[in-house]
Design a protein around this nucleic acid. Structure first.
Length: 713
DNA sequence: GACCTGCTGCGGAGTG
């Protein structure tokens, strides 16, 4: 039987009314399987290939909504995505008379109250709203979500390998526990590495044996053009902006300049160029520090512009599936930090069926060009970096312990540790470890033992009862920027923020007229000229494979026709620089340059291995400075022989890690800043957290074992 | 130089 005939009549009517000529391959496959089995499924296919329908058409055909209670729970990483999907799912559900309810921090309270009065249909929710319900209204979890047939997780790759993902995994396990029957899960994803046969994905859904992957790898025609304009970190080269302007003049285009300050620089300067020659003025910026309403307007403008051109300069805020309609082209300024990110960005253009995507890759320095070219080559090989899973998420455990205790009105130690040991998100954490952490939380008054039961302690109340409790991630404090009551965005307090200073924000130029340190507000007025704003952040980690490919490019003699003349020349220069080494293998051989009074070592490996290596070298008394963008170590040795005699003892077995890590935490506690909840752990567990999340000792060990220094000739 | 993500409950004012 064809997939279409397996669907219920109302759903078939919906499809006929949409005038779809056929079902997409991923939909065909998903319908056949979801209707016939109770397996969990992960649907992998590119953006705008009908994944949402691939999940909902069969689920809506199969589920009996006449029964009491909510039957389908859809979980999304973004509010904006919930709002988009709500419109689509509601239209579909109108054919079945099934109600759909949005449940997130900005959703209507009235609609939530109506659902509580009559729990039914489909609910769209964020992990944090689900967490809030577990903590504050645990009875509502039972009341609303104990009759689930299906859980749908959108954009699951955005959760994979992150603390937020482990959090969600834990919530799903807790949700399953209150359900009368086992619910099935359907997860949707655009980009996931298959290096470990999707083991991380299958684990995530809790039941690997019952979890199947359906993948549609329909390669999309895509052309790339590289353009090299050497420039400074401070400002983009004018020639680059002029070249980019020509791209934006008569197209709908997204530009990804990697950093918020640069996003503003691009938007403001392109708009100025356009104004000068009388071009369109639809230049926008879109990133986390642009006011939410302004961002929504930009998304709305892009979606409704069928004939009007526009240019949105943006960060990863426009990487995920928010519907902004069709875009003709994507421009990337300097290298992406991952292939996964490149795939998402490329997927933003030519979304219309049969239309090919175009990609413009600009680079402003040689190393960035090299990284960009490596990402492009790997992209063409369909490579995606594997996600790194934290097998010992002690910090998420702290958070979930507090959540469980708060959600119960007193819980015994055995019941509490049983909740954790039965939760697959914490399967690699032993009962003894859990009990030790509970004891520590009690010692620091986060928990309190009352008779046989644990409740939230005095210090614990302070964190559990704030709205900041529901997330696993930190949020920095920013000053809100507005002009005469109109909200524009927000900025971090930096030396740059002074009265009379002129800055870019939301693609416009402003003069700061007043700063209110008390209420954290900045008042501005329109101005004619200024500077890009400064934000502070961490650079994302680069995968070892990207760095290896960069070395492979340097060792090769191939002429890449995707590079422009300046790019060809830049690659020639870099190859010349590295031609003094007789490199034979990009996997093991690494250049060691001895010149003046220092040695330079190019490791060409991932950020976490570099970080670990730098740490180990320092522990063993080898002073070094790491330049991550070049994957380069400067070593304080003038003679290679001196260095080698010390280096031969560099071995992971020669370092007492527990001691070294504890000392690191004591001397520089800021290394733990990546973990919001890790600060409440005993020091020995914090050391473990560093070991598994911040460093990569296993990877570094393999790197050292294979390492073959090659000296310049 | 360096990404992103989300948010309860309650009180009080304003609106239909």
């Amino acid at each position: 039987m064809t997939a279409f005939n397996l669907l219920s009549e109302p759903i078939r009517k919906y499809i006929r009314d949409q005038k779809w000529e056929s079902l997409r391959p991923i939909q065909e496959a998903a319908i056949q399987r979801i209707i016939a089995t109770d397996n969990n499924y992960v649907l992998i296919s590119r953006t705008a290939s009908g994944k949402t329908e691939a999940a909902f058409l069969p689920i809506l055909s199969k589920v009996n909504f006449k029964e009491q209670g909510v039957k389908v729970l859809y979980i999304s990483p973004l509010i904006a995505l919930i709002n988009d999907q709500f419109t689509r799912v509601e239209k579909l559900c109108a054919y079945l008379d099934v109600p759909v309810t949005k449940w997130h921090g900005e959703a209507s309270k009235g609609a939530k109250d109506r659902l509580i009065k009559a729990p039914e249909g489909i609910v769209l929710i964020t992990p944090e709203s689900l967490e809030a319900m577990f903590v504050n209204k645990p009875y509502n979890i039972h009341h609303l979500f104990s009759t689930l047939d299906y859980v749908v997780i959108d954009e699951i790759h955005s959760f994979l390998g992150s603390d937020r993902g482990i959090h969600l995994q834990s919530l799903l396990q807790r949700l399953q526990k209150v359900n009368k029957n086992t619910f099935s899960t359907v997860a949707l994803s655009a980009t996931v590495s298959d290096e470990h046969k999707y083991a991380e994905l299958k684990d995530f859904l809790g039941d690997p044996a019952k979890t199947k992957v359906i993948r549609d790898i329909d390669p999309k025609p895509i052309t790339a053009v590289f353009k090299y304009f050497e420039g400074s970190v401070e400002e983009l080269p004018l020639d680059l902006l002029k070249d980019l302007y020509i791209r934006t003049r008569d197209r709908k285009i997204l530009v990804f300049p990697n950093a918020r300050g640069r996003v503003e620089e691009v938007a403001v300067k392109l708009k100025k160029l356009s104004e000068k020659v009388g071009g369109h003025t639809n230049y926008f910026s879109h990133h986390s520090s642009v006011d939410k309403e302004v961002r929504e307007y930009v998304e709305f403008f892009a979606k409704k512009s069928t004939h009007e051109n526009f240019c949105i300069s943006c960060t990863s805020t426009l990487e995920l599936g928010i519907d902004i309609g069709n875009v003709d082209e994507v421009a990337q300024i300097d290298a992406t930090h991952s292939i996964a990110s490149l795939i998402q960005r490329v997927g933003r253009s030519g979304r219309r069926e049969g239309k090919s995507s175009s990609l413009f890759l600009y680079a402003t320095n040689q190393w960035s060009l090299l990284q960009s070219a490596a990402c492009w080559l790997l992209f063409k090989e369909h490579y995606i970096e594997p996600v790194s899973i934290n097998s010992k998420p002690y910090d998420v455990l702290v958070h979930q312990l507090l959540s469980i205790v708060k959600g119960s009105s007193g819980i015994t130690l055995s019941k509490l540790s049983e909740e954790i040991s039965g939760n697959a998100a914490f399967k690699n954490i032993t009962v003894e470890e859990t009990i030790e952490i509970i004891a520590h939380l009690t010692a620091i008054d986060f928990l309190e033992k009352l008779g046989q039961e644990y409740i939230i302690g005095i210090e614990g109340e302070k964190v559990v009862n704030t709205k900041d409790f529901y997330t696993l991630f930190h949020t920095p404090v920013f000053f809100r920027v507005s002009s005469q009551g109109v909200k524009i965005g927000e900025l971090p307090l930096s030396p740059q923020i002074r009265t009379d200073e002129n800055i870019y924000l939301s693609a416009r130029i402003w003069k700061i007229t007043d700063i209110d340190y008390e209420s954290k507000k900045i008042e501005v007025m329109a101005a004619k000229d200024g500077n890009k704003p400064r934000f502070f952040g961490d650079a994302a980690d680069i995968a070892p494979k990207i760095r290896e490919t960069m070395l492979e490019i340097l060792m090769s003699v191939e002429q890449y026709d995707f590079l422009d003349e300046a790019g060809q020349e830049a690659v020639r220069q870099m190859r010349k620089k590295f031609s003094v080494y007789d490199l034979k293998s990009h996997q093991t051989d690494r250049p060691l340059f001895s010149g003046n009074d220092k040695l330079t070592f190019y490791s060409f490996t991932g950020s976490r291995v570099n970080r670990t290596l730098s740490f180990i070298l320092k522990r063993m008394g080898i002073k070094n400075e790491l330049f991550e963008n070049e994957s380069e170590f400067e070593l304080e040795f003038s003679q290679k022989s001196d260095f080698m005699s010390v280096f031969k003892d560099v071995n992971l077995n020669n370092v007492n890690f527990d001691h070294a890590l504890a000392e690191l935490i004591e001397t520089s506690p800021e290394v733990l800043s990546f973990s919001k909840w890790g600060i409440y752990l005993p020091v020995s567990f914090q050391a473990q957290l560093l070991r598994h999340r911040y460093f990569d000792f296993e990877g570094c060990n393999v790197f050292l074992q294979n390492l073959n220094f090659v000296e310049n000739q």
